[in-house]
Design a protein around this nucleic acid. Structure first.
Lengths: 243, 243
DNA sequence: AGCGAAACGGACGACACCTTCCGTTCTCGT
DNA sequence: ACGAGAACGGAAGGTGTCGTCCGTTTCGCT
């Protein structure tokens, strides 16, 4: 990547509206005049306000909430919002990066759990609880943005780790033989369908549904019924892609 | 097997275009000169064209497809569409009345099945298949329109019949003891979440999910895990109600 | 054929949201 | 304190959908 100085604003994202990786890293070279992230104090304050407002608005009104409303809620003008986040995808991604990072961390931990089934259950329960309560986060989770390469990369990584976890579960014999990795995606999508109501309802519905499904995934009773052919993962991706 | 009663329904439903069919208050003059539905031939033709176009558009673009697009697809002007269907709800309701009637008929038959479990499975499988393929129909199914009294009444009736069926299943001991009627709604909502993709994918995902869930509903293995408290039905209704 | 009324559809105003322009305000290093 | 320029936000242009008005066309009865 070329030099990413916040030089030309029309170049927009040049001032790193994106990645989370560099916190106190290497950007001190050229100008450390302002904060460690190279933003002026008022800019940084507005950025946080916008993100908080976006979380509220997206959770309340869905991921399609008008950006004007987000800006108003944040107490900034529309232009400021667009300056920080040139696209809706950028805003959504950043707004829920914390929760999504949390999810990824969960997966990271679960994959090292000596009891793979416990690890899997923990991941699923925790993640679905989060998704149930934060509608916007759920939308971000289920939406695959064409441009956001790093975001998608994280997703793929998480998926690979889940695959590893599932594989270990199957080896341990706790998952039914015909379980497929895509069944996990199925679970998350199903949860999404069940979580359309107000948060409390969404949470209750989610927990009951997940209870049924995790039960169904177990080898234990592994009774007759074989569900039809599993989906391919790429079929289940990006089902709610914008545009 | 099913007699073809549903065929007669699409003809009988054309009595009223909607709740506010009174334009000029010129009723009561008893002019039944035109067809039995009181519509002129071109009006009836356009009405059918609009309904067909609506089904296509709603299935393809979702229930929020612009009405202008529906009108264009039908080859009529926007005014004609609004004249026949004053609100979006009226159009959606009429467009999918046939499929919804089919669903109701299915339930009607299943409730008399001597084997209640088979009846329940048939209903669930058939309905979810329909909902998977017809996105607009699914939206109509999951949306509770404030004004459409008759439509909601049918829904309630179907629900009561399903309750009866479930009750018989539980008495027969084929449903786990802690099964709740709302779990059926849960299933339909979950299916909705899984069916966002293209039809083939939606169908495959639906069938697999329903396989898992019906399996989970059975008393047979009825293994340890008790899902959390069930939802109240009214909580699960109208989750996607339009403004 | 002719007439009255029903039905049609192009066009229009209203509205919400998106996105950018540009003059103004504020920050930060000197 | 001061100046350069980064950042701000009001306002305006653009787009798409809604819902309706009104002159024109088509139907069906006599």
């Amino acid at each position: 990547m070329a030099d990413q100085r916040s030089r030309t604003l029309d170049g927009t994202t040049a001032d790193r509206t994106g990645t989370s990786a560099d916190r106190q890293g290497q950007e001190g070279q050229g100008n450390d005049r302002q904060g460690s992230d190279g933003l002026r104090s008022d800019a940084r304050r507005n950025r946080e306000r916008i993100l908080a407002a976006a979380r509220e608005a997206f959770d309340a009104q869905g991921i399609d909430a008008p950006l004007t409303a987000v800006a108003r809620r944040a107490g900034v003008g529309p232009a400021t919002l667009y300056r920080h986040f040139p696209t809706r995808a950028a805003l959504v991604t950043e707004a829920f990066r914390q929760q999504l990072d949390h999810c990824h961390q969960l997966i990271e931990e679960a994959v090292t759990d000596p009891d793979p089934w416990r690890g899997l259950c923990t991941v699923v329960h925790t993640m679905t609880d989060i998704l149930a309560v934060h509608r916007g986060c759920a939308a971000a989770f289920h939406t695959r943005f064409p441009g956001a390469v790093d975001f998608n990369a994280e997703r793929d990584r998480a998926e690979a780790q889940l695959a590893e976890l599932v594989s270990r579960c199957r080896q341990a014999g706790v998952l039914r033989a015909d379980f497929d990795l895509s069944d996990l995606s199925l679970l998350f999508l199903a949860q999404h369908g069940v979580a359309a109501g107000p948060p409390e309802v969404a949470l209750a519905a989610t927990r009951r549904l997940v209870g049924y499904l995790l039960q169904g995934f177990r080898a234990e009773g592994a009774p007759p019924l074989p569900p039809p052919a599993p989906l391919r993962l790429d079929q289940v991706h990006g089902v709610a892609a914008p545009d």
